[in-house]
Design a protein around this nucleic acid. Structure first.
Lengths: 84, 84
DNA sequence: TGGCAATATACGTGATCGCGTATAAGCATG
DNA sequence: CATGCTTATACGCGATCACGTATATTGCCA
Protein backbone atom coordinates (compact mmCIF):
# COMPACT_ATOMS: atom_id res chain seq x y z
CA UNK A 1 0.00 0.00 0.00
CA UNK A 2 3.03 2.21 0.24
CA UNK A 3 2.10 4.13 -2.87
CA UNK A 4 -0.76 6.57 -2.84
CA UNK A 5 -2.24 8.61 -5.59
CA UNK A 6 -3.32 12.22 -5.20
CA UNK A 7 -5.20 14.11 -7.85
CA UNK A 8 -6.32 16.98 -5.70
CA UNK A 9 -5.39 18.78 -2.54
CA UNK A 10 -7.78 16.86 -0.37
CA UNK A 11 -6.39 13.50 -1.34
CA UNK A 12 -2.92 14.82 -0.77
CA UNK A 13 -3.86 16.08 2.66
CA UNK A 14 -5.38 12.76 3.58
CA UNK A 15 -2.25 10.93 2.50
CA UNK A 16 -0.11 13.22 4.59
CA UNK A 17 -2.31 12.75 7.59
CA UNK A 18 -2.08 8.98 7.32
CA UNK A 19 1.67 9.15 6.92
CA UNK A 20 2.09 11.42 9.89
CA UNK A 21 0.02 9.18 12.10
CA UNK A 22 1.89 6.17 10.92
CA UNK A 23 5.07 7.94 11.93
CA UNK A 24 3.43 8.49 15.30
CA UNK A 25 3.77 12.23 15.21
CA UNK A 26 1.36 14.92 16.25
CA UNK A 27 0.78 17.91 14.02
CA UNK A 28 2.72 19.95 16.52
CA UNK A 29 5.66 17.57 16.51
CA UNK A 30 5.79 17.45 12.75
CA UNK A 31 5.45 21.21 12.58
CA UNK A 32 8.33 21.85 14.89
CA UNK A 33 10.58 19.63 12.81
CA UNK A 34 9.98 21.76 9.77
CA UNK A 35 9.46 25.13 11.40
CA UNK A 36 5.78 25.32 10.65
CA UNK A 37 3.02 25.88 13.15
CA UNK A 38 0.62 23.19 14.17
CA UNK A 39 -2.12 25.30 12.61
CA UNK A 40 -0.33 25.28 9.29
CA UNK A 41 0.02 21.52 9.31
CA UNK A 42 -3.66 21.35 10.06
CA UNK A 43 -4.48 23.41 6.99
CA UNK A 44 -2.25 21.27 4.83
CA UNK A 45 -3.88 18.06 5.97
CA UNK A 46 -7.31 19.56 5.55
CA UNK A 47 -6.51 19.90 1.88
CA UNK A 48 -6.85 23.65 1.68
CA UNK A 49 -5.89 24.61 -1.86
CA UNK A 50 -3.98 27.73 -1.02
CA UNK A 51 -1.26 26.31 1.15
CA UNK A 52 2.14 26.82 -0.31
CA UNK A 53 4.25 24.32 -2.14
CA UNK A 54 7.09 24.78 0.32
CA UNK A 55 4.77 23.67 3.09
CA UNK A 56 3.99 20.49 1.26
CA UNK A 57 7.58 19.71 0.36
CA UNK A 58 8.76 20.35 3.89
CA UNK A 59 6.18 17.98 5.28
CA UNK A 60 7.04 15.28 2.76
CA UNK A 61 10.67 15.67 3.58
CA UNK A 62 10.11 15.40 7.31
CA UNK A 63 8.02 12.29 6.80
CA UNK A 64 10.66 10.83 4.54
CA UNK A 65 8.35 10.72 1.59
CA UNK A 66 8.89 11.67 -2.00
CA UNK A 67 6.70 12.79 -4.83
CA UNK A 68 6.39 10.99 -8.12
CA UNK A 69 4.80 12.60 -11.14
CA UNK A 70 3.46 10.28 -13.77
CA UNK A 71 0.78 10.05 -16.42
CA UNK A 72 -2.66 9.47 -15.02
CA UNK A 73 -3.35 5.80 -14.80
CA UNK A 74 -6.98 4.97 -15.42
CA UNK A 75 -8.55 8.39 -15.59
CA UNK A 76 -11.50 7.70 -13.34
CA UNK A 77 -14.05 10.30 -14.27
CA UNK A 78 -13.99 13.78 -12.72
CA UNK A 79 -11.29 15.48 -14.66
CA UNK A 80 -10.45 19.14 -14.64
CA UNK A 81 -14.11 19.86 -14.23
CA UNK A 82 -14.29 19.18 -10.53
CA UNK A 83 -11.70 21.79 -9.80
CA UNK A 84 -14.15 24.54 -10.57
CA UNK B 1 11.12 7.46 -18.18
CA UNK B 2 7.48 8.25 -17.53
CA UNK B 3 8.00 8.47 -13.79
CA UNK B 4 9.84 11.35 -12.27
CA UNK B 5 10.80 12.02 -8.69
CA UNK B 6 10.52 15.42 -7.04
CA UNK B 7 11.88 16.15 -3.62
CA UNK B 8 11.73 19.88 -3.83
CA UNK B 9 9.93 22.65 -5.65
CA UNK B 10 12.63 23.08 -8.25
CA UNK B 11 12.56 19.48 -9.32
CA UNK B 12 8.82 19.61 -9.47
CA UNK B 13 8.93 22.71 -11.60
CA UNK B 14 11.39 21.12 -13.97
CA UNK B 15 9.19 18.06 -14.34
CA UNK B 16 6.21 20.21 -15.13
CA UNK B 17 8.14 22.16 -17.70
CA UNK B 18 9.23 18.99 -19.44
CA UNK B 19 5.72 17.64 -19.41
CA UNK B 20 4.26 20.83 -20.78
CA UNK B 21 6.75 20.93 -23.62
CA UNK B 22 6.14 17.32 -24.39
CA UNK B 23 2.47 18.16 -24.64
CA UNK B 24 3.48 20.89 -27.02
CA UNK B 25 1.91 23.67 -25.04
CA UNK B 26 3.14 27.14 -24.26
CA UNK B 27 2.85 28.51 -20.75
CA UNK B 28 0.10 30.72 -22.01
CA UNK B 29 -1.82 27.86 -23.55
CA UNK B 30 -1.54 25.77 -20.43
CA UNK B 31 -2.50 28.73 -18.31
CA UNK B 32 -5.64 29.45 -20.21
CA UNK B 33 -6.77 25.86 -19.84
CA UNK B 34 -6.65 26.13 -16.10
CA UNK B 35 -7.48 29.78 -15.66
CA UNK B 36 -4.04 30.80 -14.56
CA UNK B 37 -1.91 33.48 -16.11
CA UNK B 38 1.18 32.73 -18.10
CA UNK B 39 3.15 34.51 -15.40
CA UNK B 40 1.83 32.15 -12.78
CA UNK B 41 2.78 29.11 -14.80
CA UNK B 42 6.19 30.63 -15.14
CA UNK B 43 6.57 30.92 -11.39
CA UNK B 44 5.44 27.37 -10.90
CA UNK B 45 7.94 25.99 -13.38
CA UNK B 46 10.67 28.13 -11.88
CA UNK B 47 10.18 26.21 -8.66
CA UNK B 48 9.22 29.15 -6.52
CA UNK B 49 8.36 27.74 -3.12
CA UNK B 50 5.39 29.95 -2.40
CA UNK B 51 3.12 29.05 -5.27
CA UNK B 52 -0.07 27.49 -4.10
CA UNK B 53 -1.01 23.87 -4.07
CA UNK B 54 -4.06 24.54 -6.19
CA UNK B 55 -1.80 25.93 -8.91
CA UNK B 56 0.21 22.74 -8.94
CA UNK B 57 -2.79 20.44 -8.95
CA UNK B 58 -4.47 22.36 -11.72
CA UNK B 59 -1.37 22.14 -13.88
CA UNK B 60 -1.00 18.42 -13.25
CA UNK B 61 -4.61 17.90 -14.11
CA UNK B 62 -4.37 19.82 -17.35
CA UNK B 63 -1.29 17.85 -18.32
CA UNK B 64 -3.06 14.63 -17.45
CA UNK B 65 -0.56 13.80 -14.76
CA UNK B 66 -1.04 12.49 -11.27
CA UNK B 67 0.92 12.64 -8.09
CA UNK B 68 2.15 9.63 -6.20
CA UNK B 69 3.38 9.84 -2.64
CA UNK B 70 5.68 7.10 -1.47
CA UNK B 71 8.53 6.47 0.92
CA UNK B 72 11.80 7.91 -0.26
CA UNK B 73 13.65 5.39 -2.28
CA UNK B 74 17.37 5.61 -1.85
CA UNK B 75 17.74 8.75 0.20
CA UNK B 76 20.40 10.35 -1.93
CA UNK B 77 22.07 12.88 0.29
CA UNK B 78 20.59 16.34 0.87
CA UNK B 79 17.85 15.69 3.35
CA UNK B 80 15.85 18.21 5.24
CA UNK B 81 18.99 20.24 5.59
CA UNK B 82 18.90 21.79 2.15
CA UNK B 83 15.52 23.27 2.81
CA UNK B 84 17.05 25.85 5.11
C1' DT C 1 -18.09 10.96 32.81
C1' DG C 2 -13.95 13.70 33.61
C1' DG C 3 -9.79 15.34 32.16
C1' DC C 4 -5.96 15.85 29.07
C1' DA C 5 -3.79 15.68 24.62
C1' DA C 6 -4.56 16.67 19.95
C1' DT C 7 -6.63 19.32 16.44
C1' DA C 8 -9.30 23.19 14.49
C1' DT C 9 -10.12 27.98 14.45
C1' DA C 10 -9.47 33.00 15.62
C1' DC C 11 -7.07 37.82 15.71
C1' DG C 12 -3.73 41.17 14.08
C1' DT C 13 0.54 41.62 11.24
C1' DG C 14 3.76 41.71 7.45
C1' DA C 15 4.71 39.21 3.31
C1' DT C 16 3.27 37.31 -0.90
C1' DC C 17 -0.13 35.23 -3.56
C1' DG C 18 -2.68 35.46 -8.37
C1' DC C 19 -5.02 38.95 -10.80
C1' DG C 20 -5.04 42.37 -15.06
C1' DT C 21 -2.07 44.66 -17.75
C1' DA C 22 2.22 45.64 -19.72
C1' DT C 23 6.84 45.22 -21.07
C1' DA C 24 11.58 43.31 -21.16
C1' DA C 25 14.48 39.61 -22.11
C1' DG C 26 15.40 35.07 -24.63
C1' DC C 27 15.01 32.24 -28.77
C1' DA C 28 14.39 30.61 -33.04
C1' DT C 29 13.61 30.58 -37.95
C1' DG C 30 13.54 33.00 -42.01
C1' DC D 1 20.26 40.38 -38.69
C1' DA D 2 15.33 41.03 -37.94
C1' DT D 3 10.96 39.54 -36.80
C1' DG D 4 7.83 37.10 -34.19
C1' DC D 5 6.81 33.85 -30.55
C1' DT D 6 7.74 32.54 -25.91
C1' DT D 7 9.05 33.33 -21.24
C1' DA D 8 10.42 36.38 -17.35
C1' DT D 9 9.50 40.33 -14.70
C1' DA D 10 7.06 44.67 -13.18
C1' DC D 11 3.10 47.69 -11.10
C1' DG D 12 -0.98 48.27 -8.14
C1' DC D 13 -4.76 45.60 -6.16
C1' DG D 14 -7.58 42.67 -3.15
C1' DA D 15 -7.17 38.24 -1.03
C1' DT D 16 -4.80 35.07 1.75
C1' DC D 17 -0.64 33.14 3.30
C1' DA D 18 2.23 31.72 7.72
C1' DC D 19 3.42 33.96 11.73
C1' DG D 20 2.77 34.41 17.19
C1' DT D 21 -0.46 33.75 20.40
C1' DA D 22 -4.60 32.11 22.14
C1' DT D 23 -8.74 29.53 22.50
C1' DA D 24 -12.56 26.43 21.05
C1' DT D 25 -13.46 21.83 19.72
C1' DT D 26 -12.68 17.09 19.40
C1' DG D 27 -11.24 12.51 20.68
C1' DC D 28 -9.64 9.20 23.74
C1' DC D 29 -9.01 6.52 27.77
C1' DA D 30 -8.82 6.07 32.69
Amino acid sequence: MTEQIARNEKQLGAILRRARRQADLTQGALGSRIHLRQATVSRLEAGEPAVQLSTLMAALSALDLELVVRPRSKSSATEIADLF
